[in-house]
Nucleic acid binder design. Structure first.
Lengths: 189, 189
DNA sequence: AACACTAGTAAACAGGCGTATACTTCCATG
DNA sequence: CATGGAAGTATACGCCTGTTTACTAGTGTT
């Protein structure tokens, strides 16, 4: 029962699918999003995903292609780059304010049990011990969280781009990053 | 046709399943590993996964429970912690099939086509432009790669632990980390 | 030796997935 | 107005998933 008929518009429907896919992929990742969820969120028929994008992977590829790069962050002076990057990253810590209510998510095949296991593991294995180690630092949790982000991010990038043996310079660089992250003043020679 | 019969041993079979699951989950992540893969790798029957661990998730939970935490890295003096963490992270950059470190926390369980899309995206969207920005730095690629790791890791942790609004201190900390990562000397006031 | 218990097995089940097909409905154009 | 093609739909297909059931076959105990 549709309250109001929508004019037939291939381009508009395509765009709705693209927008829905972008939001869902960004929030849940490729595998947890089904084409039925996308179609439902876009209020379009399932078959149109195949028709307009060939396949789920094709749609994903198009979403990726449209996503902005960090080139806009790079615009500006060199000295200010770290802060711009930090703000760029910080923006990602926010919850998306324009999150829509998605009907399909109610029946989604999401596995909350695993989500909880991973979450608990991340806490007990890395963040909490690290925070405890930091002791009375009021920002201990936030620091530990960021350190965990660097640790897991390294693994993720390595997995995506392939293994690359770390050089001594890499280790030095990571050391410096962890130093400032955890606010530990190393005894520099 | 089994060449040699194995003695019936519940505990041993359970352990074989656990070991197989650990290796597979570490390599491919939870979602891309099927119970049939685990059973096959352990040379055990599929039904035994359910019998001994309740479910695939139960088996995953048991694997997580057995994995070491970073507490061993924390053992030692505070000043040396950043370096120990760096070396811990660097170890993850190696292709280490025997590693007991569970990498499922940072996995991206994707079929090869998606893997390639993500990989290409990571390159063209973040790493390459960042490396080009850094110019003649011989370590430009390595630096960009590490910066990308921090960026993606933040997203990943946020996804696992839930969104948390960044504080000014967070942004400052990230700024400092990007500064040392990219070897950019900011103009501190 | 016979029994009871249990490790191990094979097969089926129900459901979700991405994808493809046959169909209906709309609209621009003759 | 008629009509052809495109937009959108409903549904089925084949596959693979985790899980469960009914069964077989070893094995320690009496």
């Amino acid at each position: 029962m549709r309250a109001e008929a929508r004019p037939r518009d291939r381009a508009a429907t395509r765009l709705r699918l693209l927008d829905a896919a972008r939001a869902l992929f960004a929030e849940y990742g490729y595998e947890r999003v089904t084409v039925r969820m996308i179609a439902s969120a876009a209020d379009a028929n399932i078959a149109l995903v195949g028709r307009y994008f060939g396949s789920k992977a094709g749609l994903f590829g198009e979403v990726l292609r449209d996503e902005p790069t960090i080139r806009v962050v790079l615009e500006g002076d060199r000295a200010g780059l770290p802060r711009r990057l930090a703000e760029f990253a910080a923006r990602r810590m926010h919850a998306d304010p324009k999150s829509r209510i998605l009907r399909a998510l109610a029946h989604s095949a999401d596995d909350p049990e695993i989500q909880e296991l991973v979450r608990e593991r991340l806490r007990t294995a890395i963040i909490t011990p690290l925070a405890e180690f930091l002791g009375d630092d009021p920002d201990a949790m936030a620091r530990a969280r960021t350190a965990a982000a660097l640790l897991t991010g390294i693994t993720r990038v390595r997995r995506a781009l392939g293994p690359e043996p770390p050089t001594p310079a890499d280790v030095d660089r990571l050391t410096a990053m962890f130093t400032v992250c955890l606010d530990i003043s190393g005894h520099e020679p």
